[in-house]
Computed example of a mutant assay.
Amino acid sequence: MENLGLLLIFWYGILHAFGPDHLTAIADFSIGKSKKKTMTITTLFAIGHGLTLFIFAKILDTYNISESILGYGDIISASVILAMGIYLLYMVFNDRIQLKKHIHDGKEHIHIWFGKNHEHDNRDTASAFTVGALMGIGGVRGMLVTLGMVEANSVDMTMVLAFSLGVMVIFVGFGSVILYINKNLLNSKQNLKRVFATAGVISVVVGSNMLLA
């Protein structure tokens, strides 16, 4: 029964990860990135998400917190998605998303960056972890309901790890889809603007719907 319970929790993690808010956030961070950075971003997002879920699950398992307070987690998640969408649209309409092609070792490479100057930094990977952690707050309530149904309201690390693993499977898999888009669609400035504008609009719609729900 224990193994069956963990399998159910793993499956719920998979279903949870398919939420439009999660996939939208990953897309916003991963579009235009290299293969290595895309995989790093999706993995860090999943780790941040799982870590927050575990921490808050233990807190809520110990202390009785009202549903109204838990609802603020959903507001935080929605606000993050909405803010990212507005930011992407701002960058598109102010021509602050750049693309440059060059040949290196006989192969064409495309560099995409935000702003006027091309800088190499790790801010996007750090931000992916932070956003994953923030959005984990919004998923705690649903996770606790599922864990409680399976294991009589007792939350331990094994259960949360099973849930987080299910989440990570989908996040990394979706990162592979973004890699395909990066490789096959982001080959011109026009396509670049279209893809980022689409991601921005979707983020605004998803975030707004979550806030209004």
Rank of each mutant, 00 (worst) to 15 (best):
N117W: 04
L212Q: 07
T38F: 05
L4Q: 14
T42V: 14
I26D: 01
A152F: 09
V167K: 07
F54E: 02
S208I: 14
V92P: 00
I137H: 07
M168K: 05
N117M: 10
G142I: 14
I103N: 11
G138D: 06
V195T: 12
F29P: 01
S127W: 08
M157L: 15
G200Y: 06
V206G: 08
L161W: 04
G136F: 07
G19C: 04
N153W: 05
L15P: 07
T38C: 03
L15M: 12
I47D: 03
A128L: 06
I178Q: 12
H102V: 04
Y72F: 05
V169R: 01
H104Q: 13
I86P: 12
M149R: 11
H22M: 00
I181E: 08
G106R: 13
H16G: 01
S77P: 00
I75W: 15
D124Q: 09
N209C: 08
A197T: 08
V155E: 09
Y90K: 11
L4K: 15
M157A: 15
H102R: 14
G32W: 02
V80P: 02
V80G: 00
Q190G: 09
E151Y: 14
T158M: 15
T42H: 09
R96K: 15
L70D: 00
G13H: 02
K35R: 07
I202E: 11
H118G: 05
N184D: 02
A128N: 00
I41H: 09
A133P: 03
G115F: 08
F174S: 05
V172Q: 06
G175N: 02
V145K: 12
G175E: 05
V150K: 01
M149E: 05
L144P: 03
L44Y: 05
K36C: 02
K107M: 03
F114W: 03
D61Q: 11
N153E: 11
S66L: 02
W113P: 11
D121F: 13
M84A: 02
L212R: 06
V206I: 15
I81G: 00
A213I: 11
T158G: 12
S164P: 07
Q190I: 12
G71T: 10
F54A: 04
A162Y: 08
L70A: 08
V155A: 00
G115P: 00
K107H: 15
L53D: 03
L53F: 04
L4W: 11
A46H: 01
S30L: 00
T43V: 13
P20H: 10
T42I: 05
I69D: 07
L44R: 07
D95C: 09
G175R: 13
T62R: 13
G85K: 02
A83P: 02
H109I: 01
I69S: 10
H120Y: 14
F45N: 03
K37H: 13
L7C: 12
T62I: 06
A17G: 09
N209A: 14
